[in-house]
Design a protein around this nucleic acid. Sequence first.
DNA 1: AATGCGATTCTCT
DNA 2: GAGAATCGCATTT
Length: 203
Amino acid sequence: MIKLTRDFYENNTLEVAKNLLGKYIVRHHPSGKLIGKIVETEAYLGPLDKAAHSYNNRRTKRTEVMFGPAGILYVFSIYGMYYCANVVTEKINIPQAVLIRALEPIEGFDIMALNRFNKNYKELNKKQKINLTNGPSKLCNAFNINKDLNGEDLCSNNINICSLDEVEEINIESSPRINIDYAEEFKDLPWRFYIKDNPYVSI
DNA sequence: AATGCGATTCTCT
DNA sequence: GAGAATCGCATTT
């Protein structure tokens, strides 16, 4: 496993969104080590993108980290009870990010099961196993990602993203992004990317 | 100070 | 497929 470095994230956001597929989120948590393979992402291209929080260079306490350097975690809360995790991309002052929409569990199954359903992994039914990490807020719950991790450096040891030593072939598909009907002419752009036929893709 | 809503999920039917 | 849960956050007053 090779930890991705800053230059991976400083790239074009649509490229990073695709390149993140098949990479591994590694989280060193007090309760143990968690690893998930990224199988679904969405690109948010502020300031032009009407779906992005940073549309029109909207710079607030919430969006601040998107204006900073690439390779930083942007975590926001939604619907009063959930979190979403994003990877900041591009150079400083270009407020773009990639939403992590789904993971395939790789290591730390019991911790994820405990965080999501308060059960051991072997107690889960078939649907619960798939539901561990097949959505943007489900994976945050499984990996215990919350506002405390907003602004965290993904080039650190606490939480980072790695690639395998040997690159594996994957088939990438794209579609419009999910739940952004408000984004007018941007709502139909194919900026959602996922690994074809992976069972943990959200939709 | 008040308002309105959301890059979601869960539980029904 | 519809409706509820539930509150932080940006915007408006």
